[in-house]
Design a protein around this nucleic acid. Structure first.
Lengths: 358, 358
DNA sequence: GCCCGCGATGTAATCGATTACATTGAGTGT
DNA sequence: ACACTCAATGTAATCGATTACATCGCGGGC
């Protein structure tokens, strides 16, 4: 009954391998082989099969194929927040590489809720996907600090962007620490002595790396680390604006602010400028990520360029290698680039003087 | 052999419904019913089943379920370009709504290549997904102008953002034409007489609506349409910059430029400012979309706010209704909002004079 | 002339769940 | 006490492809 209803309603039912076999006057096995291993079928049979396929518009049923072969040709991409424009280009890199390899991409936007994570973990456990790319900095079921048991997934995983501490899975990352160090040294080379750091959420692994790099850079340049120069933030434009307000309210201002992402840097700059400061004449501002708009704000933002698309492609390729049983490097580090634009300049004389010895 | 190998390699094999049934001492039918229709199973049996499920960590195999029930609980979202930040918030709205309804989201990034489109069309034809949301302005296999045969997909489709001309599918959209008209009238109300329009790609349906709205607005205000004031563009920052350069090179400049998206407006503003013009004192600039950065550039951008997240949610809900056999409205129009910020102001006197009568 | 090997093809088991239909047994009305 | 209903459960067909194994027939080696 059920069947009949559906058949009646939708018009023609999708063609099955049976239909093709009948039309081509071969068995279903031959049809299957003609598609999967053409060299094992006689040219004549293959031709008849292809013709029949074209005639009835046959498309293999993915569910049946997945069920039998235990391979879904789907990959899950888990990320903390689809809204974060930082991810869009990475996603594109991933999609490109997956598509070329014949895989589809399922998106799991965690949106900060743990129950969503559980359902995405079930995707992998159930064999809904052949593997997963994790852009969220921790494993399924794991606590933020990287301890606690990771859920058993049974499929290959690859971590992107945020290294997952203690996890035994390949990681593709940018050398955040080295990049932050480089930026800090660059600012110091401009004469800045009081270099503030606007940080991201402390629980974030990536953030910790950048923070470490900042302190490395200070040390390299013989500058003392001053906790008062570390400002709290959460990677949002608003956090940048808040930090800007905080700086404006201070008596002793930093002469440069290194923000751990571009969005905060842009929010910060805007607030500082509204508050009457000139960037970079009065204060320098630097970011991290090199998002599209970094070059478009006024002044344009000095920042660290990350090869985001390449990051996505690399991650996907490593996962694909794993899926095909090939060896994969435990860790891939991609190079960043310091992009000097208009938001950074020499330390103002007054600032240098004012902070020479308080 | 194949089976044994796999079993040996990965350790424990995923639990099947059989395993649960054996452990709970019921039949597989009862297990299935305990999950799908609990009220049709005795409380004791249900309890035993749930316990067994927890013990063996059973997760139903989606492929088997899809194969039998002809329902994949997956939805395909087709979009022209993942990179375009305009889509990220819409996607988030879609993901939220789909997740709540128990659907997964597969992303198809067309990236401008027709063969990708064909493969995504196959997804739907093969029953890989239960339905699709199209953000790309045309149906599978259809030519850009909306003619030509659409591929038979066999699943419900919903168009988002860009209405698809002639397609008999529900459309969720923003009233682009009315919004563009409103913006044009707003600019005129500031005294602008020479209002330029920086357009998007002409093949784009959405673009045509905005363009039409612009001309509506001119007409309302008794302003003549001047083809010389329509500048070519493609929605990119670079196109905005190019348009800016073109305007700077002109003798007779417009006193206001209405850009059909924010990215172009931002690129345009930046070039104009670098060229020595003041915004809005010398020239007003307005955008469309209200992307996050619209408020963050200097001066902040006057634009049309689109409820992007709501758009995504609505689209997903309409599709879900269709999937459940409920009626869906053929067309949903969401309201936009004119957001006045710093990039628009009264027409400069000189401009008004200069263009009073050439 | 017989047998072996091998390429081409067919038959049917299999993947794991859903569900139509059958069966059982307890409760109810007369 | 008997027939009937209905809830609970079981049995087995089914979804559509893949693939192990069987079969067939042809050609070559001895």
């Amino acid at each position: 009954m059920d069947e009949l209803d559906r058949r009646g309603e939708g018009g023609a039912r999708a063609a099955r391998i049976q239909d093709v076999a009948r039309l081509a006057e071969v068995s279903t096995a031959t049809v299957s082989r003609a598609l999967a291993t053409p060299e094992r079928v006689s040219p004549e049979a293959r031709a008849r099969v292809l013709e029949a396929i074209a005639k009835v518009g046959y498309v293999p049923n993915p569910a049946a194929r997945t069920l039998r072969s235990q391979k879904s040709n789907m990959v899950l991409v888990v990320l903390p927040n689809l809204d974060n424009i930082f991810f869009s280009r990475i996603l594109r890199g991933i999609e490109e590489a997956l598509f070329e390899a014949g895989y589809g991409m399922i998106i799991g936007d965690l949106d900060g809720s743990p129950d969503k994570e559980a359902r995405f973990a079930a995707f992998t456990a159930a064999g809904q996907v052949d593997g997963a790319l994790l852009l969220n900095g921790h494993l399924f079921g794991q606590t933020r600090d990287g301890r606690g048991p990771a859920a058993k997934t049974g499929v290959p995983l690859v971590a992107l962007c945020e290294a997952i501490p203690g996890a035994d899975i390949p990681q593709i990352e940018v050398d955040n620490r080295a990049a932050a160090r480089r930026m800090t040294r660059y600012l110091a080379s401009l004469g800045h002595r009081r270099i503030a750091y606007l940080r991201g959420p402390e629980t974030n692994v990536l953030e910790r790396e950048r923070h470490r790099g900042y302190r490395d850079g200070l040390k390299d340049e013989g500058l003392a680390f001053d906790p008062a120069l570390v400002l709290p933030g959460d990677y949002s434009l608003e956090a940048g604006a808040a930090a800007g307000a905080a700086i404006l309210a201070r008596r002793e201002r930093p002469s440069a602010v290194f923000c751990s992402n571009d969005e905060m840097a842009i929010g910060l700059m805007r607030t500082l400028i509204s508050g009457g400061l000139r960037v970079p004449q009065d204060i320098s501002v630097a970011g991290f990520d090199d998002i599209e708009f970094a070059a478009m704000v006024e002044p344009s933002l000095t920042t660290i360029h990350q090869p985001r698309r390449a990051l996505g492609r690399q991650g996907a390729h490593v996962l694909i290698d794993l899926l095909n049983g090939r060896e994969a490097p435990p860790r891939v580090r991609l190079k960043t680039e310091l992009v000097v634009r208009g938001s950074t300049g020499p330390a103002p004389r007054s600032a240098t003087k004012r902070t020479a010895k308080p």
